[in-house]
Design a protein around this nucleic acid. Sequence first.
DNA 1: TATGAATGAGTATTCATTCAT
DNA 2: TATGAATGAATACTCATTCAT
Lengths: 229, 229, 229, 229
Amino acid sequence: MSPKQWEVVYAGRMSAAAKQTGRAAPRGRMDKRQAILAAAFDVFARRGYAQAGVDEVAAEAGVAKATVYNHFGDKETLLREAIAASAEEATAKNLAAVERLVDSGGDPRELLEDVGFRLIQCYCDEQSWALRRLLYAELAHLPDLLEIVQVRASARVRQALADRLARLALAGRLRITDPDAAVEQLSALLTGPLEARAEWGTRRLSAAEMRQVATAAIDTFLHAFGSRA
Amino acid sequence: MSPKQWEVVYAGRMSAAAKQTGRAAPRGRMDKRQAILAAAFDVFARRGYAQAGVDEVAAEAGVAKATVYNHFGDKETLLREAIAASAEEATAKNLAAVERLVDSGGDPRELLEDVGFRLIQCYCDEQSWALRRLLYAELAHLPDLLEIVQVRASARVRQALADRLARLALAGRLRITDPDAAVEQLSALLTGPLEARAEWGTRRLSAAEMRQVATAAIDTFLHAFGSRA
Amino acid sequence: MSPKQWEVVYAGRMSAAAKQTGRAAPRGRMDKRQAILAAAFDVFARRGYAQAGVDEVAAEAGVAKATVYNHFGDKETLLREAIAASAEEATAKNLAAVERLVDSGGDPRELLEDVGFRLIQCYCDEQSWALRRLLYAELAHLPDLLEIVQVRASARVRQALADRLARLALAGRLRITDPDAAVEQLSALLTGPLEARAEWGTRRLSAAEMRQVATAAIDTFLHAFGSRA
Amino acid sequence: MSPKQWEVVYAGRMSAAAKQTGRAAPRGRMDKRQAILAAAFDVFARRGYAQAGVDEVAAEAGVAKATVYNHFGDKETLLREAIAASAEEATAKNLAAVERLVDSGGDPRELLEDVGFRLIQCYCDEQSWALRRLLYAELAHLPDLLEIVQVRASARVRQALADRLARLALAGRLRITDPDAAVEQLSALLTGPLEARAEWGTRRLSAAEMRQVATAAIDTFLHAFGSRA
DNA sequence: TATGAATGAGTATTCATTCAT
DNA sequence: TATGAATGAATACTCATTCAT
């Protein structure tokens, strides 16, 4: 992924204030902080936390190294904030996908396949793999990253998904007694196969392959939780 | 994990000849190599590759730092070999679990739950988490690790599992058309929930919780692939 | 930094002038670089390139080791720059000696003996021996040192000397057809005996001994190139 | 100079015993010592003393590293012995050249030019340059090398040369009062120009160029010391 | 706030040397 | 004597962090 592409990705992270004022009106302040965060995630994702140099982050952000320290204090904090920002972004995308899960009457299969496909797309995003790589790698040393990934990201998506499944069950479209259990199975079926297929993030999956995984997952899921099961 | 425990673990790696002769006949040479490999995996797992010092590995193996270099040439090779050895070991345990999957007549549910439970135990092993952590962390920098994890570990287990499921299907215990697809679903159901429940390896799961995951997984699986489905 | 700047810089190293002119105006930055260069030459000369430690250079320069690397990048570059600076300095001294070679009318013997003596003094300078030692030792590994010693040092002195001899010949004081050939003979006669007498730089020569060498050299030279020859 | 050529050079260093018995009758003993010495000089000459590894010497000699230590005790001794052997060899060649300086009646110019040319050839030999490089580089650290080069090599050649010049003077072919002074001038004239012309040993001189240097040197010398001067 | 320069605490790697066989 | 393995001491180079401006 080229630096240019990252800029696009990170453009979405501009502060609410910045967005309101149009493009980048109150420049000179928040801009640098954002640039550093974006560069930091980029570099950490590419090189890994320990192998990444603050020099490199600063260079990619176009600021002096000391400026990075002025803003974030130390490398660890920089990692945490970069991960938090990225996780927030990824979570938002996941939640957007889940929000499409509304009963439209009739067989929910197609609906579930569509949402499943969208969740898989989120999961297979380059940034998403990078995020998981960083979390896996550093969780052992920085246990508080767990709070970020679990409370502020994963759990929120699961909760939202459980809510939607519950409503579908209530509407008689699914036969679910414990929505949390159902979400656990559904999530497993959707994301479990991706590790191997995407070769742990080193291979890009085609849309067709993603859709195939979604279809298989929903098929199994509906055998167990479909209303005609 | 204490050194004593590692010795037990690595005892399995002794050459056939050594096992036969009783007390490690060709000692004095391979001993040090094994000690280094064990220490290396231990330290890399604890600290992460980049943060781990070769000093520390040498100290834990009870040899001089230069001896590590005599045997492995550089730190990267040491990582590769340590990972390969550990992956081999983990794979062996997984295969042993899969081998129990033989039709004993009647309802396969209990059998599947037992094997599922054992596979989950393998997955939740401390060493297993450490291995996945290292792989996730370094796969981006050392792409050839993929071969180790995929070809020499993951794929072999999947293949073995597919074989057994095929035989159960042949015996009329399951209703499977594509064994590979069935394995994909089963694996996902067994391991998918563990990430979150074990908090990405930072929390130990009780046997009861593991069994619960197994039961839920097999239940869903049998809805989709059971012969009465 | 351009070569021109270096000349200026190094002129300043003979502190007397610099101190007189005021208070070291552009201090603070160049100071450290100079201190490192001086220390580097010193240490390399004492210990030899390979045996010298960058630690030692830094300590002698009164800076941190990393500062040395900030300025010069690596040990090899440090050697090159230290040698170049020292060679420049030595060349300046040689040229100053040659410049005294102006016809004052009458027999040139005394004049030549005086200049010869001064050149021998340059050659026997401690720094001069150290420089030749380093060059001899490292020329095989760092062939670009040749350019420094030949083009920027030795050749310039020879050229200047040839010019002066040519003018003396033109004035009828010497009988020279090829000034370059004459310089070659003269240089050989002046410096050739010093190797053995100074025991390859390990022994200090007295002024009397240097003068004796000069006298003998000029005597032989005048037999071959004197106007009455 | 290729490794093969070195073997030829060093073949001449076989022990007297070996020579007597024909070719290499008492093999297995002295052979290894010689091979190590030859390899040592080769490696030291190529890499410099500090940069050369005992490993490399052992490998080039075809023995184990420990064998080198069995024979020579430590690296420094190895250097000394290798240098001594090489210096002895070079001295022998120089003496052989000097021995040709016998009065054959008439003008000694041609005779002197021939001997001068031969001495220049010795001086420009690859091994000779390597030897001087090593001596220059290490003389500061290992002062006892001085004894080798001065007493056992340089002085002997000078002495022999002085003897021959004295006899020529006695025969009326030269007009010399102090033979040592005459040798000093002659040596300077012969070897002085070579440093610059051969670019400190990095360039090979053609026979024509060597002869030219010899001719010029002898011409100057005879102006000063010829009997018709 | 932003920066260029400086630094102290590392860390991977090498190598002369020793020892058991 | 010859060797393969082991080692302790050394060393070039890096990097997170600080400080003066």
